[in-house]
Design a protein around this nucleic acid. Structure first.
Lengths: 348, 348
DNA sequence: TTTCATTATGCAAGCGCTTACAAATTGAAT
DNA sequence: ATTCAATTTGTAAGCGCTTGCATAATGAAA
């Protein structure tokens, strides 16, 4: 513990470099090994010893040095997550749940964003690996084989969230996006709509977005309907893009009586476009969302949407990953989203 | 580079432990020192050497071990941020900006949340210190002296975001919450309101929330008005809490004609409560928000609120912190929020 | 008391990397 | 060819921590 200082305006500030294990050892009169034990495995140390060491730790304000620890134990107690974006609320809740659940186990969460860009995602994953994360949470299933190969070759545990399908070779915690989209589309059809359009998220590199389109197609096909270039728009997940897409759809050859949106943010944008065009929802055009984020209940009219249990998904992902990390095996987990009816969908 | 393996279904998967600097050194025929140099300071190495080393790096797929690096250099290229919550959108945008700006400089952002709890914040700060962050971004100014003492004694650079005041002893990137709140309150008064109430965020440990109350008080006082127990409610930053607070205010002895809210989320809740009570906004009661998150434009009626340049604030915080980290000095930065009028505020 | 299994502690060797400092190489000037 | 300064590379000492193994302390049984 070398004190060093620098001069500033005639004063010398002494800055102690942070205390080390060795400082604690000296202070408590035990060896570094013992101190290390009381920190990592307290029960392996006699109570009296432990108490003395703990007092020394408190006195010096000791905090283990992360790097040293990682180096010696080859473990970081860190797991990483790469999500598309923090900018809209879609992932916020699940992420918070993930984090809280991990924190409970003494694990820190490292979050990186990809902006829905597969290349950037791969880069972020590599960065996280470089930081020695003990596990990884990724959104969705669609990504390069090379990425999966890299993870496997390292034996790095990971879980995919938000997607789920039978026979998925990876561990996932999610739901059947296609079935969920089919469900809400069927609901729309049940209300008698026949001119239905869809605003989907960008499908490149995004299996959730793609599967939701397919789900809608499934439902329509069952009634002899289809999605054409005039009735299917693709837009990044922002209100503005949703509004723009809606305007385009509205300007098409036949005005849709219902617009199914790939998520709540897009639906919110669609609502805005409707309002701006002097149309009422659901009077003139019905709109549905997907995700059931808080926004869905706050817009006017409140969105009929698909409820996703964000919080529970985040929690479940944490637990699953923790088990994998500890070498236990664990099954994928599938959730069953439900359509929640509010006021943005009505009979034709 | 010891290969080890395990058996699974009769196959043996060989997992190489990740390559180390030494592996690269052997492969390229140079010493570890030289390899380290091409990674950290390429210009200090002859071009031919560099190229050979780079080839070896690529061939082995080498990534530096974070822990080893942190241990040896006492630097992590990581900065930490402790924000109150990820659950609502208030901090999302700024955080994203912060992250992108830091990434540009090769720095990783570590995010922790405190749930608006000062004790938890202190704990998270310690955790981040333990991970050897090179700097810290904190929200607001109000926290224990001991926390500041700890940061100072370590010489750890940090910046406070969202708050700013003349003579603040710390580096900050924010705005004058009190003045901003005063500004919007004045706007409300200018519309002729005299029965004005306020829903504030929880003020304990939250200088922003407290200062906003004071700002409103300032404006009211200038017209001989005050905030009483009947006209000031405090609520956590959620829609539901905002709605509950609004209901309480509405049930008070005199019904307010305007409710000034501590942020947009509370205002959204207030709007919901109004609707539910059969009251119209702004017809019966005007409502104002604060922050100007995306939600503000999407609710009905869209919120008159105070626009905060989240993105620029995040960016500025990143730049400031980076400078501090590099030992340069840098001034605090103050933004000038503007009231943005939409439709939730109208004449009495 | 002595003995011997148990349990508690200490010793010391790394983990992968950076960085003074020393040694070697280069190449321009003689 | 030499010489010498400038440049490039290598040597080796840690950074703070964990952990296998050896040693010491403990306490129950004899």
């Amino acid at each position: 513990m070398v004190p060093y200082g620098f001069e500033s305006l005639g004063n010398v500030f002494l800055m102690k470099s942070p205390p080390t294990l060795e400082d604690v050892a000296k202070e408590s009169g035990f060896s570094t090994a013992t101190v290390s034990r009381v920190i990592n495995n307290p029960s392996s140390v006699r109570r009296k010893t432990r108490e003395k060491v703990e007092k020394a730790v408190a006195k010096l304000g000791y905090t283990p040095h992360f790097g040293g620890r990682a180096l010696a134990s080859n473990r970081t107690n860190t797991i990483g997550a790469v999500i598309p974006t923090m900018e809209n609320a879609i992932f916020a809740r699940g992420l918070q749940a993930l984090q809280e659940e991990l924190a409970e186990a003494g694990v820190t969460l490292l979050v990186a964003t990809s902006g829905y860009d597969p290349e950037r995602e791969a880069k972020q994953i590599r960065a996280l690996l470089g930081r020695g994360v003990d596990g990884l949470v990724l959104i969705g299933e669609e990504r390069g084989e090379d990425v999966y190969a890299m993870l496997e070759s390292r034996g790095l545990p990971f879980v995919l969230v938000w997607s789920w399908r039978e026979d998925c070779p990876w561990r996932c915690v999610g739901f059947d996006n296609r079935a969920a989209a089919r469900a809400i589309a069927e609901r729309v059809l049940d209300y008698g709509h026949t001119r239905v359009a869809m605003i989907a998220g960008v499908t490149r590199g995004n299996d959730r977005a793609r599967l939701r389109v397919e789900g809608v197609r499934d439902a329509l096909a069952a009634r002899g309907l289809t999605l054409s270039d005039d009735t299917l728009a693709e837009a990044p997940y922002t209100c503005d893009a949703g509004a723009a897409a809606a305007r385009r759809l509205l300007a098409g050859p036949i005005r849709p009586s219902a617009i199914i949106c790939g998520n709540d943010v897009l639906a919110t944008g669609a609502l805005a476009a409707l309002r701006e065009a002097g149309l009422s929802a659901p009077g003139d055009v019905s709109v549905t969302g997907f995700d059931d984020i808080e926004l869905a209940r706050q817009v006017d009219p409140p969105l009929t949407t698909v409820h996703i249990p964000h919080w529970r998904m985040g929690q479940a992902a944490a637990r699953l990953l923790l088990r994998l990390r500890d070498g236990e095996d664990a099954e994928s987990i599938v959730f069953q989203p439900k359509v929640v009816e509010r006021r943005s969908l009505a009979a034709i």
